[in-house]
Design a binder for these strands. Structure first.
Length: 584
DNA sequence: GCCGTTTTCGGCCCGACTGTTTTCAGTCG
């Protein structure tokens, strides 16, 4: 059998935590398993190796007991403790954890008292009144459970950032426009630029909380009101996403903004750092601990002051994931993250020649309007027949057309002629080298045969990027967020090969892809692999996707220097040629 | 179950809202 991935191991630990919750175990023991799952997920070393050398307990958050269990799991592929625990519960019961408003205690009561073990049975029990009659429950709880079941069926509770950005920005703008609003911001995973978000968190500083809350819950985008208290309101928007509003005083704004931006893991460490200094931190203030003899904390006017007070450089929201930002902020080695304004051009864009909706001329005009200096055209190759892929004749005709068009720009704009070349199942390319040699650059991508083993897929991609004419690798994993799983591929091995061959890796900025994932960019950067942020635009409006790509690049700790399309005309050409020149 | 400038026991981040119950448990973030 193939080795377990870190994510699979982390999932198993999470699953243990969930089962311990159902058993009503000590909450700190449960947290220990959750923490360990988190530690495994973010561990940068080789787990199998660490297990072999008996070093798992060296990982912070993994002690002796969990280290022993992990060793058993890694060595044998099984964990008796987990198997035994799992046998105690009906298999369908875990899906009930997905429902908003019920947790382990209620799930346990439903199971023990009503013998409800699946969501389908739960729905029935709500409808025939058995849930409402249960002690500790009631009519409202029963109704809320039914609503949660329907909501889950409809939305699954997760949304791509790119698709709810419009709602978020509109609500924010209108909140900021209210006369009583002093400051407003969207916090949460939206502010951290996560690729997928579960809800929207609006933070508003005001002296008129009731008026602001009323505006929020009665907004025309709102479908239903979930909660409406003095400081917190929750609604479901018509788009399906849940939105929360926190109203606070102006002096509390930096604390609320920081707290609700998260991540939860980041917050815990912030609070621990406050405690270590004799202070307590919450969403309203940084204050002295009771009976503490420490100096009182300094005044805080904005988030930056808070980080300084805790001995840290300012941490950009995208980096607040407890993935090394605290160590870097202490040592003043946080990266100077790339900004939207740094982009000078982009590659991987389609036209009507393959499956794009706009012509070459229209795409050029749109790129110029965005202030870009250059635009790379990479239409599909012939193997992607479903996308009207170009054969060599059509491609070379397009190259000639681009060369002619370039003469009209007088040097202040340039189209680069490229192609998005299919990688065959065997790792060969869809065009021979003689054709590729006539292009300015070439993107290679996998578009079919997704079901290879990880080893086969990795070999396929590495073989493709070993070709000296391949400038960059397109959407590494082929994932479509929330709709299609990534195919199996060894990221670290591909990054290694990209470093060895001088191949650029694309950060596909289409909000459905955002691929390569942000979690892998720090490794790519460490290995010296460059990034190209590409919108994979199939229409002029898709060029706007670059914005989402910047967010993910920032999340991946990338600076201007790590991203090739920040280079101006005059410098970018040499980068596109570097790999094929090196092989000559 | 983890961890240690409070160091091998005793704490572990902290507050808001809802619903059911009548002073608080459960859930969420």
């Amino acid at each position: 059998m193939s080795a377990l991935t870190k994510d699979q191991i982390a999932d198993l630990l999470e699953s243990i935590a969930q089962m311990l919750e159902l058993k009503g175990e000590n909450v700190f023991k449960i947290r220990a398993y959750t923490n360990a799952a988190r530690a495994i997920e973010t561990y940068s070393g080789d787990l199998a190796k660490a297990a072999g050398e008996n070093r798992l307990a060296e990982i912070s958050g993994v002690g002796k007991a969990i280290a022993d269990k992990l060793t058993e799991l890694i060595v044998t592929g099984h964990l008796m403790y987990y198997e035994n625990l799992k046998a105690e519960f009906p298999p369908g019961i875990f899906e009930m954890f997905d429902l908003q408003g019920i947790g382990p205690k209620k799930i346990k009561a439903l199971w023990e008292k009503l013998n409800v073990t699946t969501i389908a049975e739960l729905e029935k029990a709500c409808k025939d009144g058995r849930v409402a009659a249960l002690s500790g429950f009631g009519k409202k709880t029963s109704d809320n459970i039914l609503a949660a079941i329907q909501s889950r069926a409809k939305h699954a509770g997760r949304f791509r950032l790119g698709e709810i950005a419009k709602d978020a920005e509109r609500m924010l703008e209108e909140l900021r426009g209210l006369p009583d609003v002093l400051q407003a911001c969207v916090a949460g995973s939206y502010r951290r630029n996560k690729e997928v978000v579960g809800d929207l968190d609006f933070i508003v500083a005001t002296n008129s909380p009731a008026e602001v809350s009323e505006f929020f819950v009665k907004h025309e985008m709102v479908e239903s009101v979930i909660a409406n208290g003095a400081t917190k309101s929750s609604v479901r928007l018509k788009s399906g996403i849940q939105a929360d509003l926190r109203v606070i005083k102006n002096t509390e704004f930096p604390f609320a903004l920081n707290y609700f931006t998260g991540s939860k893991e980041h917050n815990i460490i912030m609070r621990q750092r406050a405690l270590a200094r004799g202070w307590t931190l919450n969403e309203y203030r940084l204050g002295p601990l009771e009976n503490s003899k420490s100096e009182p904390p300094p005044p805080i006017h904005e988030e930056r002051d808070l980080y300084r007070a805790l001995g840290l450089d300012y941490v950009e929201p995208e980096l607040r994931e407890d993935r090394g930002e605290f160590a870097a902020a202490e040592k003043h080695t946080l990266p100077d993250l790339i900004e939207k304004e740094n982009l000078r051009g982009t590659f991987h864009n389609h036209t009507t020649a393959s499956d794009g909706r706009n012509t070459l001329a229209e795409m050029v005009e749109a790129a110029q309007e965005l202030g870009l200096q250059y635009l790379g055209i990479a239409d599909h190759s012939k193997a992607s027949f479903q996308a009207h892929g170009l054969d060599a004749d059509r491609l070379l005709a397009q190259v000639a057309e681009i060369r002619e068009l370039n003469k009209t720009f007088g040097g202040d704009f340039k189209i680069f002629a490229g192609s998005e070349v299919d990688i065959t199942k065997e790792g060969a390319l869809d065009f021979p080298d003689e054709v590729l040699a006539q292009l300015d650059y070439c993107v290679v991508s996998v578009h079919n045969v997704f079901n290879l083993t990880e080893a086969e897929m990795t070999k396929r991609i590495i073989k493709a990027i070993e070709n000296p004419y391949v400038t960059m690798l397109g959407h590494l994993t082929g994932r479509l967020l929330l709709s299609r799983e990534a195919y199996q591929v060894d990221h670290a091995a591909v990054i290694e090969a990209a470093a060895a061959t001088g191949t650029i890796i694309e950060l596909n900025a289409n909000p459905r892809r955002l691929d390569m994932d942000w979690r892998w960019w720090p490794l790519a950067k460490e290995k010296g692999v460059k990034c190209a942020i590409n919108p994979d635009a199939h229409s002029t409006s898709h060029l706007q996707y670059l914005h989402f790509g910047i967010g993910i690049a920032r999340k991946g700790w990338l600076t201007r220097a790590d991203v090739v399309n920040t280079l101006p005309l005059g410098k970018i050409e040499a980068v596109l040629q570097a790999k094929r020149n090196a092989k000559k």
